[in-house]
Design a protein around this nucleic acid. Structure first.
Lengths: 190, 190
DNA sequence: GAAACTGTGTGACCTACATCACAATTGAAA
DNA sequence: TTTCAATTGTGATGTAGGTCACACAGTTTC
């Protein structure tokens, strides 16, 4: 499937655009490819775009003072990724985004997103609902963090994203769950 | 200050509306008052509105199977509160909202919010940015949960909302931080 | 004023998970 | 095929924070 079709199908789940409107919408995106391991957003960078994943897997993560990694999100096809704090506020990146596998993405700059939102009312509606869903999902994850132990969270993750298990190294799964890789190893060997 | 002025000042931080537009916008809100301890949204309820706080303090929280409480958010004047998962999805409430102190609020139904978003482009813009900010804030809190210990999170909370300390019982602060009240007590007596 | 309730402090003990150390396995590169 | 690095498993030990128990405020109710 073509990038354009993938995006169209994704957007159509929330809003309805005429073909001309969608052509215009799509014209603001730039196609790019990245290699496994490549950094798309690094700490300290000026962040001016967000990525819509066409193929492959990304991760967005934070590195603390002890060089320990915490994964905020895995991004798979039709998901969006960026350092949204930086993107929305104009500050420098504190969150990194890189490729777990080779990946194809569509880039949308912040300027263009705001332009589209201004020019196409439905476009603003789309982005509002995208954030609404992200907000609720993040809140659920926060609750799970407070409420459940690591084993529970691990099972939750696998139930939700079974594909991750085979594609993503266990270390990264551990970083997402907020436990050490040793603890994760013990969890599923019992 | 009048409810209308409070909302206007709040909305004006993100968007610009003409007086007629704002009058229309405001006409969709309903003024209500609640007493300390009163429940605004209870588990299992059908959720059809969200609350804009004019005065007083609310909390939104989740109760798990062991009857343990986890606070998702405190809401203070000019903040919004609801069970957004339920509100956006149409499902029954899993999150409760109640009053920590007597409170005055403006209610906006989901139907009216969507109506306003359809009819006033700037309105949709406002609600998009409100959620954008909520999303980033929740993500930061999630990161803090993964990264920092309870003491650090406690100091973070006090630095951000110094007023909470005097108004909100320590038990609730503990529920927000995700620690037992005993642990919290030990934290700040050392 | 006694009684009853809600909020808080503090000790003793327990548990989930971290950390460190090193072994075993896999997989890419040469 | 050998080599080297990255990834994973596993034991021993440490610790933050949980749980239970009870004491001691303030505050509301009769």
């Amino acid at each position: 499937m073509q990038p354009k079709e993938i995006l169209k199908e994704h957007v159509s789940k929330t809003i309805t655009l005429t073909d001309e409107q969608f052509d215009y919408f799509f014209s603001h995106f730039t196609y790019k490819t990245f290699k496994k391991g490549q950094t798309m957003i690094g700490e300290g960078d000026k962040v001016d775009c967000e990525y819509f994943v066409l193929s492959g897997y990304l991760k967005s993560f934070f590195i603390n003072d002890d060089m320990k990694m915490f994964i905020l999100q895995f991004a798979m096809p039709t998901w969006w990724a960026s350092d949204y704090n930086a993107l929305y506020s104009g500050e420098r990146a504190t969150v990194n985004v890189d490729c777990i596998t080779d990946a194809e993405v569509l880039c949308l700059t912040s300027k263009d997103r705001e332009k589209l939102c201004r020019e196409i009312h439905e476009g603003e509606h789309f982005f509002r609902w995208r954030t609404n869903k992200g907000y609720v999902a993040t809140q659920k994850r926060l609750l799970s963090f407070m409420n459940n132990d690591a084993k529970h969270r691990y099972e939750e993750l696998l139930a939700q994203y079974p594909t991750l298990y085979n594609i993503v190294p266990k270390q990264l799964i551990a970083s997402y769950l907020g436990v050490s890789r040793e603890t994760l190893s013990r969890l599923y060997h019992s």
